[in-house]
Design a protein around this nucleic acid. Structure first.
Ligand SMILES: [Mg+2]
Length: 220
DNA sequence: GCGACAG
DNA sequence: ATCTTGTCGC
């Protein structure tokens, strides 16, 4: 029973899983078409049932922040691995609509297609706004890989059997790897390239760091 | 039954 | 994600 009033908890997740299967069919993995000058960094802060979604816009070259927006909303679902998009996408869409600038690419704190149904947060958000996105997660959701050397720039493919999902990337010497995967309207080389080019001195890419900082301070 | 499990 | 101070190492 898709879309109804009250329903059993088990049915809710089953319905959301079906919805993800539909959404995943809209995901396009293709080379970034635009020239990238403005990049949007996305992250959310959540406490209890109140959440805030933040998007910062950084300019290239320089990675200087030129704008940022946020959106506050109520979180209806509890966290469950594989369903993060349903909690954070609404908040990010709200912030997206308040932006004055239009980023050429969005970097999101979460997986792209490296997801059980190939529709992680970055892909989900990308399909909803139909804009280029790349997923940049701090830990793994699914897939197998061999640990890359400890030097910045090292990487290894993230695989589900023989299917490539993304890359496990060392963005800084002697720190845990990041998990990069294309979200929507970007491809694997794009994910690897941008994750490394937007990382300077810190493990997490600057755009996402800025968004994270804003979400944390506003939430007070 | 056991282990994995984005944020 | 959030709860939380100082401390060890690059
Ligand atoms: Mg986050």
């Amino acid at each position: 029973m898709l879309s109804s009033g009250s329903q059993r908890s088990s049915e809710i997740w089953a319905d959301l899983s079906l919805l993800q299967q539909k959404l995943s069919k809209k995901v396009k993995i293709e080379p970034l078409s635009r020239e990238v000058r403005l990049i949007g960094g996305c992250d959310c802060g959540i406490r209890k049932d109140k959440g805030i979604g933040v998007i910062t816009v950084v300019e290239l070259p320089g990675l200087r922040e030129i704008e940022w927006s946020y959106w506050v909303g109520t979180i209806a679902l509890p966290y469950r691995s594989g369903y993060l998009g349903f909690r954070e996408v609404p908040l990010l869409v709200g912030a997206y609509r308040k932006l004055k600038n239009r980023p050429d690419l969005f970097l999101i704190d979460g997986q792209g297609i490296a997801h059980p149904r190939r529709i992680g947060l970055a892909s989900h958000f990308g399909v909803v706004i139909d804009q280029p996105t790349i997923g940049c997660a701090k830990s793994k959701l699914i897939g197998d890989y061999r640990e890359p050397p400890s030097t910045r720039g090292s990487y290894a493919p993230l695989l589900d059997g023989s299917e490539l999902l993304g890359y496990v990337v060392r963005t800084k010497d002697n720190v845990r790897c990041l998990f990069a995967s294309p979200g929507h309207r970007t491809d694997f080389p794009d994910a690897l390239f941008w994750i490394l080019h937007l990382t300077t001195g810190y493990r997490v890419p600057q755009p996402i760091r800025f968004a994270h900082h804003h979400a944390k301070e506003i939430q007070v």
